[in-house]
Design a protein around this nucleic acid. Structure first.
Lengths: 186, 186
DNA sequence: CGGATTAGACCGAACGATCGGTAAAGTCAA
DNA sequence: TTGACTTTACCGATCGTTCGGTCTAATCCG
């Protein structure tokens, strides 16, 4: 996930960082123009739908990234332990070792129904993926569902608390505890 | 926590609901004027510091509310089980049974250092309060600290996921599991 | 080949609307 | 009459957005 400026993906990567840090309403087109190096009008060439379409595109990019780095491990073949480790490493990188917030959180603040729906779909896919992983490790169905939900809750919560406390290690501890305990049969 | 319009606290309660739902940047003075029934200039009579001071006042109100309904139970006398039940009931009410977001989350998005500091102080106080409760229930110090942190993470995370999934029961389940397990010695 | 045409990326300047914020006159209770 | 409070009218700045146009590179035609 590098950051070439000129390509469309490079633009979206910059936008992703801005949105996740300041929220949708907290990012102005002036700021977007600044970080992308493109004039306001140029941005409307790439995103005729304006700021809203930019946000949608960023959400789509994040969904694609999840598909490639998380769901591929969650749903894929291989030992559950190895798959879990891959997923946690991917999250750890995406969230900057606990220093960056989750795009889903800030996008969920928007009133637009489409944004809410995208967030919901991704959350559902996440829970389902973790549920699959727990099932593959031998957990009974209801327990797997509970664990999956609890894991997503812990990840999201630790990001919030890490940002609030300005202590990224809260997130790191949660990741580590998931790595240790998520698959363990009690 | 009722909502008389005219008094200062009534104004702040309306503001609290707006801020927690739309975020600081998502709430305009026009909207604030609308929900409070006060003209723009009247708002600046009560809050000479403008929108920023309004946000600070809301944070202070929330801090006071925590003091009266959460910390008084967390730090106070009484059986740990009863104190825990009071705190969880207070949270449940404040968060609308999982339908409302946390003010701290949205305020943590602001760039202003003062806002970040307030959020940080409250989070610290929350963790410390839960830590005290676990200590009183007989947990060893390091375990108490871990539990407290995990509890706050679970509450915050469940609010995020509940909003994201549009499923408030995620929050309710976390509250219930805390009520069952938080004090239990393993 | 060379000249005209086209399509896409990009930008400066400006749009109307709304932003947060203010000055001054008026209202009303004490 | 004083001080708390509201109303009306307004400010400059910035918001997201659009218009008109330039530059470049590929494409097409002769």
């Amino acid at each position: 996930m590098s950051g070439e400026r000129s390509t469309r993906e490079g633009i979206l990567l910059n936008l992703l960082e801005e949105f996740r840090e300041c929220g949708f309403d907290g990012v102005s087109l002036a700021r977007i123009s600044e970080v992308t190096g493109l004039g306001r009008a140029s941005l409307y060439h790439h995103f005729p739908g304006g700021k809203g379409e930019m946000a949608e595109a960023v959400m789509a990019l994040a969904a694609d990234w999840l598909e490639d780095h998380v769901f591929v491990s969650l749903d894929g073949p291989g030992e559950p332990e190895a798959r879990l480790a891959e997923v946690l490493a991917a999250f750890n990188a995406f969230y900057g070792e606990g220093t960056k917030s989750c795009l889903l959180d800030v996008m969920a603040l928007r009133n637009q129904p489409g944004a809410r729906a995208s967030v919901k779909r991704i959350f559902q896919r996440l829970v389902h993926g973790f549920e699959r992983l727990a099932l593959d490790a031998g957990h009974p169905p209801e327990a797997a569902r509970q664990r999956a939900e609890a894991a997503i809750v812990a990840i999201q919560g630790s990001l919030i608390v890490a940002r609030g406390l300005e202590a990224p290690d809260v997130f790191l501890r949660v990741i580590e505890s998931l790595r240790r305990d998520y698959l363990r049969i009690v």
